[in-house]
Each structure stands twice: as C-alpha cells, then as structure tokens.
Simulated assay, not measured.
Amino acid sequence: MTRCLSRWIAAALLLAAIAPAASAETLAVTIEQWGLLGSWAVDCAAKPDRDKGALLTYEIRKDGRVMYRRNFGGAKDENEVVSATVSAEGLLNVMVYFPSLHQAREFGLVLLKDGSLRAIYNRSERGEYTIRDGKYVATGAPTPTQQRCD
C-alpha cells in the first residue's frame, strides 16, 4: 500500500512540474500560429511616441514565456502574456500582466485580410473598457490598424 501511495505522489509531483511548461508551450504555440509574433505599429516608419504611436512587440523567450514589449519613445516596458485563446470567429484574446499597473488587462485582436492587426477590445480585470467594439470608449473613434514592422 505504501509503495502504491509513493508512486501516486511521485506521479503527482511529476505532473505538477510538467504542467506549467506545457501551459507555456501551448501559449507560445497559440501566439505563433495566430501570427502575432513580431513588432507592430500604426506607422512603422515613425519614431515611437506616446501620442503618435507605440511600437508593440510580442516575442517568445528561450524559457518559453511570451513577452509583450511596449516602446513609447521616452518610456518602455516589458510584460508577460499569461494567456491567449482564439475564438471561433478568429479573434485572439490575450491577457497580459502589467506589474507596473498591478493588474492584468485583456485585449482582443483581429488579423485583417491585408495582414494588418486591429484591437477590438481592451479591458481591465475589473471589466473596465478602454476599447470596446473596435472603438475607443473615451472618444468613440475607431482603433487604427497596425502593420507588422519586421
């Protein structure tokens, strides 16, 4: 009985060690297969600027983590993508943890036929939207398309 219990405990510990790696691998595969990897901007020729457009980069680290880097010119940050799923309509739902904001944000992205990217929604973990239905909540203006810069 003790030998059987020891085997079950060993198997559970092995599964607990493997599960995070499998989850990270699935996340990286989702991001890569959907086509998000690389750098994106409204205007790739323009210098990154908070008011005129940031350079947004998604990359997979050697350890398998997916990172989201934002370059606003004078300010830059790097944040971990914690989940990504693709809806039946092809919308990529991404959740990123922002340590500087002490919060996670979820956003939905769509790849258009011309290869550009567009944000459809962006909300806090409390459900507060900055982008809803492809429009900025504050102004009602549609979100711009972003082009791949690399």
Rank of each mutant, 00 (worst) to 15 (best):
F72I: 12
S23N: 02
V81E: 10
A11G: 07
E80H: 14
I18N: 01
T139N: 01
Q33T: 10
R3A: 10
P99V: 03
G64T: 00
A54V: 05
K113E: 11
L56Y: 14
Q147M: 12
I120L: 11
A12Y: 12
F107V: 02
N122Q: 05
G127H: 00
E78P: 02
T145W: 01
T57N: 13
G53K: 09
P48Q: 04
D49P: 03
R65S: 14
L27I: 12
A104F: 01
T143W: 00
C44T: 05
P48G: 13
I31V: 09
S87E: 09
L5A: 05
A88N: 06
R65L: 12
S116W: 06
S100D: 12
P20G: 02
A12Q: 11
L91T: 15
R70L: 02
A119H: 15
A10I: 15
L109R: 04
Q33W: 08
R118L: 12
A45T: 08
W8A: 11
G73K: 01
W34H: 14
Q103A: 15
G73Y: 09
I9H: 03
D43L: 02
M1I: 11
S39C: 07
K113G: 13
M1Q: 07
A75Y: 03
G108Y: 02
T57Q: 08
V42W: 08
P20F: 00
L13P: 05
S124T: 04
E25A: 11
M67R: 01
R148Q: 03
F72H: 15
R7C: 02
S100V: 06
A138Y: 15
K113Q: 15
D49Q: 04
G35E: 12
R132H: 08
A119T: 11
D77Y: 10
Q146T: 05
A88H: 15
N71D: 06
A84G: 07
V42L: 06
A41F: 12
P142K: 03
F72L: 11
W8F: 06
P144L: 10
F98G: 05
Q33K: 05
G35V: 04
Y68I: 00
S124L: 00
G35M: 00
L5H: 11
N93P: 11
R70I: 06
H102M: 11
R61G: 07
K113S: 12
Y129N: 14
P144G: 08
G108E: 13
L109P: 13
N71R: 01
A138I: 09
Y121R: 05
Q103W: 10
L36D: 10
V66G: 08
L36E: 06
A21R: 02
R70P: 14
E78C: 09
A21S: 04
S6Y: 14
A138M: 14
R69Q: 09
G74T: 13
R61Y: 10
D77E: 08
A138C: 02
G127C: 01
L112Q: 03
L112M: 01
A24K: 03
Y129F: 15
T139Q: 01
P144K: 08
V137S: 00
A84W: 04
W40I: 03
V82D: 00
E25V: 13
Q33L: 06
A119W: 04
R126K: 14
T57V: 09
A19E: 10
W8E: 13
V96Q: 01
T143Q: 01
K135N: 02
A75L: 05
